[in-house]
Amino acid sequence: MERKLTCIICPRGCDMTLYLDDGKLISVDGNACPRGKTYAEDECTHPKRSVTSTVRTESGRLQPVKTSAAIPKELVFACMDEINSVVAPDGLSIGDAVISDVLGTGVDVVVTGKAI
């Protein structure tokens, strides 16, 4: 079986063709680099996405955050719920975690910029 997939790892956005056998990835075509193949493998077994958003700070400001790595795709909305229920202390800087080990994924939600 073939499956078409656009790689999202970098802005190049390679159009890849995945060759599958019983859901298992046999080979990949169209990827310009090995990261494409890894992405294709993940997409076939356990797709992952990074989440970016903002959190509210104690003083009522907004601070941009992201997941420090991609999390399972099906947890994206649950992760948004976590992000939207947290109040970050004031004074955090880039890289500081606002939520540690979000949803037991081993991934932190970390600050990416100044509070506005």
Binding site: E58, K66, S68, A69, S85, V86, V87, A88, P89, L92, I94, G95, D96, A97, V98, I99, S100, D108, V110, V111, T112
Partner: peptide, 17 residues
């Protein structure tokens, strides 16, 4: 504010990716 504040565990200088 109260309940969620407790939840916001801050880990300074964690690996931010």
């Amino acid at each position: 504010n109260n309940s969620l504040h407790n939840k916001a565990k801050t880990v300074k200088n964690a690996d931010g990716g």
